[in-house]
Design a binder for these strands. Structure first.
Length: 589
RNA sequence: GGUCUGGUAGUUCAAUUGGUUAGAAUACCGGCCUGUCACGCCGGGGGUUGCGAGUUCGAGUCUCGUCCAGACCGCCA
């Protein structure tokens, strides 16, 4: 037997018990006559005590172990002379009469402690060591807990958890596919799913009524702090469901998760906001509603006063940063530089200070008098002491800049508290958006999304105007989930593919199986998928989903621990009927 | 594809205008220490300053290239 208890378990009631513990050596404190070892496992830390006078042999043995050795000790639980209030097991310690080294350890490259001395790069290379640390173990435990809450809730709601294939078919829509060569069908490739979308719809056609899956999805696109090439979704679909059914079911699920994991009560129903309003008031489709600072369009107020920048701009808009009228010239210059970075691309920044004494000071005093500036501040309902920041230019770029500026000022004013969670449904997304590069419409969500019935007539004449029964769940400016009512009618699906520029043959070739399935009695259905990693990192109050994934990939999509991706042997390629053409690359390992 | 930031001891960082033997903390090793829990005290070892070239009397520091890491833009139906 390796252990009778875990290292987090023993309490004062256990004093006198004969026990066996196994775990990792966290720390050795050799005081001379006394030696202490902190023994660690997932459950906690228990102190082992060795008295040189009472048991010199055992003490000598204890001094032979090093950090991160795996040892087993037998002994009895005794009450401590000096108790440690910071440790759940701090009232007791183990008086050992046997100690066995189960596994030695080299000196670890960084300390395995709450606050490690190791940097990110090193910790990723030795991820299995980093995962020993308490913060990582808490995050992985939290992830487990959230997954359990999701399953518990959906099981109660009669959802079936059904697995769908991972080796599927490549489609040109959407993100790049990861492709997998087929040995038995040379020259042909599987693709890894970007989502189980069509399978879950087919499960609805098959009458399973309610489906979910906590499932890996794959997209071969560049990474971000919140984007991994393989990531986990809570993928769901419901039959005989309208948009409201999905929204209410999944806001209840979200509420249950926050209640059971964090003991936080989210107010239901969640606020709903049309996409168009999100764009005009917040400049993006995932507004952070922990604070206001809404964007106001100023075109009417500011045009026609010989200020060329404004007069020639398609769009002028601003935000009001409360209490920042004391920003110095230097602060504002820095902020101007900040919005001029290529990531934002603003030409400049116009400000109006509404001073505490009721006067105005702006960077455009030459063009606008006091009365005019006052009317601007009224537009924002600004008070003395507030600072108005204005950008102008092309509408999409300017809105994006204002959106970023709003978030930055929100940060500076401390308005984005991680303990506060404000959920929001963004609804009424456009069905399609124009893509300049390919000169055609792209599905904004995906090509199976149903248009709003009253807009459906526009599908042929003006697809850009059609709104969809599509929705995103946004919490604190993070897109946590998204879904839609699906098309369940073969003709409508065909029309949709046409609007997206598919020929009949292309549609048939790529999605014929789905349209065929719709011929045999498809129930109306709708669904949603949650970004599980994002949800967990939000709950954990972390900025990067990497922190809640056991073995994440780095910035370049590499796993630096196992060093993948990597080359494969010539005969492996030959078996697959593949030949590499690396004329673009100088070499490969 | 692009922009930016960084790379110095096992690790985290410092090093003034380009100027002496590249320092500190921590980790590690040795010694002392019977109540520590960030133990303490004394001593010790530890460096191709990512790599390559250039400028210079002299480069950790400046320039160019390259590799690696991170953040972001494009991209992500």
């Amino acid at each position: 037997m390796y252990r009778t208890h875990t290292c987090g378990e023993l309490r004062i009631e256990n004093v006198g018990d004969e026990i066996i513990l196994s775990g990792w050596v966290q720390k050795i404190r050799n005081l001379g006559g006394m030696t202490f070892i902190d023994l660690r496992d997932r459950y906690g830390i228990t102190q082992l005590a060795f008295d040189e006078n009472a048991n010199p042999q055992m003490t000598t043995k204890a001094r032979e172990v090093g950090r991160e050795y795996v040892i087993q000790v037998k002994g009895n639980v005794i009450e401590r002379h000096n108790k440690n209030k910071n440790l759940p097991t701090g009232d007791i310690e183990i008086n050992c009469n046997d100690i066995t080294i189960l596994s030695k350890s080299d000196i670890p490259p960084f300390t395995i402690e709450e606050d490690t001395d190791g940097g990110d790069e090193l910790r990723m290379k030795y991820r299995y060591l980093d995962l020993r640390r308490a913060p990582l173990q808490r995050q992985i435990a939290l992830r487990h807990k959230v997954a359990q809450e999701v399953r518990k809730y959906l099981n109660q709601q009669d959802f079936f958890e059904i697995e769908t294939p991972v080796l599927i078919k490549s489609t040109p829509e959407g993100a790049r596919d990861f492709v997998v060569p087929s040995r038995m069908n040379q020259g042909q490739f599987y693709a890894l799913p970007q989502s189980p979308q069509v399978f879950k719809q087919l499960l609805m056609v098959s009458g399973y009524d309610r489906y979910y899956q906590i499932v890996k999805c794959f997209r071969d696109e560049d990474l971000r702090a919140d984007r991994q090439p393989e990531f986990t979704q809570i993928d769901c679909e419901m039959s005989f469901a309208e948009q409201d059914d999905v929204l209410s079911t999944f806001e209840s699920m979200t509420k249950a998760i926050f209640k059971n994991v964090l003991d936080i009560d989210l107010k239901t129903p969640f606020q709903r906001m049309p996409f168009s309003e999100a764009m005009s008031k917040y400049g993006n489709d995932k507004p952070d509603l922990r604070f206001g600072m809404e964007i106001h369009e100023l075109n009417k107020l500011v045009k026609g006063h010989d200020f060329k920048v404004f007069d020639s701009a398609e769009y002028i808009g601003g935000i009001c940063a409360q209490g920042l009228a004391d920003y110095s010239r230097k602060d504002l210059d820095k902020l101007t530089k900040w919005v001029q970075r290529p990531q934002i691309g603003a030409k400049g920044l116009v400000y109006v200070k509404y001073n505490e004494d009721g006067t105005f000071k702006s960077s455009v005093d030459k063009f606008y008098d006091e009365t005019q500036l006052k009317s601007w501040t009224e537009e924002f309902n600004a008070k003395p002491g507030d600072l108005i920041l204005i950008l102008a230019g092309d509408k999409p770029i300017t809105l994006h800049g204002l959106s970023e500026l709003r978030l930055e000022m929100g940060n500076r004013l401390g308005l984005r508290d991680k303990n506060t969670f404000v959920p929001l449904w963004v609804v009424d997304f456009p069905l399609v958006e124009w893509d300049e590069e390919s000169k055609r419409y792209h599905a904004m969500h995906h090509p199976f999304t149903a248009p709003k019935p009253k807009d459906a007539g526009l599908l042929n004449e003006d697809p850009g105007k059609v709104r969809a029964n599509a929705y995103d769940l946004v919490i604190n400016g993070v897109e946590i989930g998204g879904g839609s009512v699906r098309i369940h009618d073969q003709q409508m699906q065909q029309k949709m593919f046409e609007a997206l520029g598919f020929t009949k043959a292309e549609a048939e070739n790529q999605f014929g199986f789905l349209m065929n399935a719709f011929k045999y009695g498809a129930p109306p259905h709708a669904g949603i998928a949650f970004g599980f990693d994002r949800l967990v990192s939000l709950i954990a109050q972390l900025d990067s989903i990497r922190d809640v994934i056991a073995f994440p990939k780095n910035n370049n999509g590499r796993d630096v621990m196992i060093d993948s991706p990597s080359g494969v042997a010539e005969d492996q390629l030959a078996e697959l009927g593949l030949k590499l053409d690396l004329s673009n690359k100088e070499n490969i390992e």
